[in-house]
Simulated assay, not measured.
Amino acid sequence: MPENRSSSPRTRTPGQWSFTRWVTLGHLEALEVHHPLFSATLVLQGAHLVRFAPADETDWLWLSPTARFEPGRAIRGGIPLCWPWFGDPSRNPPAVRRHALTHDAHGFARTALWALADVRESAHEVEISLSLNANQDFADLWAGRALALATFRFSVRGVELALTTTNLSEHPLAFSQALHTYLPTADITRTRILGLGHSQYIDTLDDWSEHTQYGPVYFTGETDRIYESAEPLQVVTPGRTRTLTAVGSDSTVVWNPGPEKAARLSDFPDSAWKTMLCVETANAGGDYRVLNKGQSHTLGVLIGRK
């Protein structure tokens, strides 16, 4: 199991918080928000949002019923942050691949311990920021230096997540990333995604070949695609529609493990593929980003109602 690491200590001072409190989930520390208009749970390991719901509504995110909250273990569900590379390092462009010093998928941020940077509350929203200083503590995993700042803004309209990367090294920094959003559905076969029509995509299950999407995206089995698109999306499931509006992204990943892969996944019930999907706001494939010294880039998504 990988070691849980952080480059700076976590801030514990609660200040004058009215709606936010410290809690423990399994063996991990988290921030729990109980606002009259909404609730949310944010785990410090990975800056991982595992729950968000407006008052009197069910969870807008999907979390595996067998998810485990353990140091160094990625949490199955919610919104994992894949950073500073997305997917298999060997499948990334050479400029990104050169910085990855491990074969582990999706980078190290999702199992690292992030530091609390700020909590702001009002009558209408709560904003929480967590930071990760990827310095020499991660030198055996990554040949780079950067500061990652994850800001979560909760309101009755929805949840907004912004991940800002600042290059702290003397040299250009190439990286890929994704906000790996898990969404629930009552039936994956009656679920569709609107907004990707006429987009080009890479089908990773078809030898990474390129295709064109015609009409909505439907699910008939295992799906793993990287779309070249920055358009607002609608995820239509039985009984509800969610909108995803991205910033700083020209790529979208659509994923569902299907029955065979689901049976091989950890912390994932065999039949769970029927009730979830992932729509990931990304900088993946050819949409990777390069920052010069001191430059920053923000990847963000607003998950809202139709």
Rank of each mutant, 00 (worst) to 15 (best):
N256M: 06
W62R: 07
R91K: 14
H48Y: 08
M1G: 08
V236Y: 00
S155C: 05
L149H: 00
S251T: 07
G300A: 15
I193Y: 03
P65Y: 03
F268Y: 10
L42S: 08
S6R: 14
T212K: 05
A146E: 08
C82P: 02
V247Y: 00
P238H: 07
G300W: 04
E222V: 10
W273A: 01
L291S: 10
L233C: 06
L130P: 00
R98V: 09
S199G: 04
L116Y: 04
I79F: 08
H124N: 10
E127M: 10
V254F: 04
Q200D: 11
S8C: 09
L302K: 11
R21K: 15
T237V: 14
T252P: 03
A272R: 08
K293C: 12
Q234M: 03
S199W: 06
R192K: 05
R51S: 15
Q295P: 02
L196Y: 01
R120S: 12
S176Y: 13
N283W: 10
S7G: 15
E210G: 02
V253N: 07
N167K: 03
F138R: 10
G300C: 05
E29S: 14
L179K: 06
V279R: 05
G77T: 10
Y201P: 00
V253M: 08
H211D: 12
S39R: 09
G72K: 01
E32C: 05
A74Q: 11
P93Y: 03
P93N: 13
I188S: 00
W17N: 15
G46M: 08
W83S: 08
H27T: 12
T275N: 11
N167H: 07
A230V: 02
G215H: 06
L37N: 10
R12K: 13
V290R: 05
T20M: 05
N167W: 09
H180M: 04
D56G: 00
S271T: 07
T298A: 15
E32R: 14
A139S: 15
G72W: 03
I226T: 12
I202W: 02
H34M: 06
S296G: 13
N92E: 14
D140S: 14
D140W: 13
H99T: 13
D267K: 07
Q234T: 09
M276F: 08
T237M: 11
A40T: 05
S18N: 12
L44E: 05
F175S: 12
G248M: 01
R289A: 13
G72Y: 02
T102Y: 01
E228H: 06
V50E: 07
D250Y: 04
